[in-house]
Amino acid sequence: MKRSATPFAITVAVLAFFYLPIVVLVVNSFNASRFGGEWSGFTLQWYRKLLESPDIWHALGNTLTIAVFATIGSTVLGTTAAFALDRYRSRLQDAHYLLVYAPLVIPEILLGISLLLFFVALKVELSYVTIVLAHVTFCVSYVAMVVLGRLQDFDWSLVEAAQDLGASPWVTARDVVLPLLAPGIAAGALLAFTLSVDDFVITFFTAGPGTTTLPLRIYSMIKHGSPPLINALSTLLLALTTTTVWLSQRLLKEAR
């Protein structure tokens, strides 16, 4: 059967669409011209300037700290949620599933404003703590879905086999369930980490005055700052993302 060339052409166009702006951005980060309209020579000065901006490094530090706490919290809660959803069928789990699923299909801005109003209503001062609470809340759902997907492929007869061979519930959990699910849990944690690092909207609503994270910093740079610096920063972030994606793909492959 002769295959139509249209899907191929569209796929190529889509990939070009995806990468064109990214290439322009990366190229411009090495462009000596301030506005990037034309090429005025190769330079690393924007990267040097970036290294010399302490506020960016400060923001990055905050972002990573928030992400570490958010990842730990959401991985624990998301994993237990996935186990509960996978193992039990009850009214409680129907409600539980709705609770876990809803944050995934609600626009970020609604999550952001509702948390802001919640903290205002409780008279909680906005700070890094409120950001972490907000991040855990939306990351739980993602972790739960990733781990749940893994659990659906999980062969529960292995648990029975372990018990059959004399392993106590605790030994079964430690020696059989956790090692087999570790790649799935790690993939969920990695997703939570990147979501937390990248989040702008929810952070924007739950951050107090003076609080800053990398996305908040980038946003204000886009609004008021110097484009070449953002080019350089974006290129670094892209390199980081690509490495992370590559790593996570390897993790998932190992899980199979």
């Binding site: 322009v24 951005l25 506005f35 990037g36 996305p215 980038i218 953002i230 080019n231 993302t241």
Partner: peptide
């Protein structure tokens, strides 16, 4: 890769492409 790339960076990239002085 674009799915995981920073949301703000992807928007900014278009700002560069569509910039009045851009390519």
């Amino acid at each position: 890769v674009p799915f995981w790339t920073s949301f703000l960076v992807r928007i900014f990239a278009w700002k560069v492409v569509l910039h009045p002085e851009g390519p």
